[in-house]
Design a protein around this nucleic acid. Structure first.
Lengths: 131, 131
DNA sequence: CCATAATGCGTGTATATACACGTTAAGCAT
DNA sequence: ATGCTTAACGTGTATATACACGCATTATGG
């Protein structure tokens, strides 16, 4: 009988995440952190709730992941519109990490595309978005 | 410029995992646990190290995940060949969970195939295995 | 205006996951 | 046999992730 899509997805996810993690190691962040930084950059200052929507992550997950970035001094929390809302924005160090990480990230991306081929890469993108 | 394969993978992985988790909820296990039970079933009694190889998970991860299954009384630990080795095997309750879960799992699997279509499903499988 | 509902967050709890370390047990070479 | 190496495991530590609760703040209906 066929393989479980979910298990295949999870395995592929772990393997590929590991590739990106290794590539990003020199700049001291992993893929999840790098991606979160990029999402912050695209909309800063941004509330944790909005960041959760953008990343498709639970708010509490975002909250904790941001806390790690804060401890690493890559982002800073500021006050939002409300008294309840707190907004995240990049620090200079965070911006530097994004700059330094871009070519590393590109390298893995290119590597994957080379391995799969252009057509398959496009198929993969479409299929993953359809799920 | 394109989307990050890794992020797409991770998002898809979370979404699809959530589908299976919901479907399996009635039997009290999540997808990761159900899958681990299946892997145990295919080779029981099996050592934690071997189980790690089969599942492509770190041994320490397997160790901890098995511990949860043990607490749920779905598996039991026995002595392996060595004094060092400990082997895992299903309990009757664990076997029952696999039996009860099979149709639930099938349902999601079928649902995904219906959504993607047969051709795309096969493509997805091939692509994920190639990664 | 005030009571209630909705919003935004943090924290408790739990699982999943990996890496680094240390321990114990086997295997092997001299 | 003794000592070195390898194998199997557990645990400490850390991040990622989600759900349920509870608290504070804002919005809203009457």
């Amino acid at each position: 009988m066929a393989h479980c899509y979910c298990i295949l997805l999870r395995k592929a996810s772990r393997r590929v995440t590991s590739l990106y993690d290794e590539a990003l190691a020199p700049i001291g962040v992993n893929l999840a952190q790098f991606s979160l930084l990029r999402n912050i950059q695209r909309a800063e200052p941004i509330s944790l709730t909005d960041l959760g929507h953008r990343t498709e992550l639970d708010r509490s997950t975002v909250s904790r992941n941001v806390k790690v970035l804060e401890k690493m001094e890559l982002v800073a929390m500021t006050n939002g519109q409300d008294q309840r809302e707190s907004a995240v924005q990049l620090s200079d160090k965070g911006r530097q990490v994004l700059t330094d990480g871009a070519p590393l990230w590109d390298g893995v991306q290119t590597e994957i595309e080379a391995k799969l081929g252009n057509e398959a890469s496009a198929q993969l993108t479409a299929l993953l978005q359809a799920l």
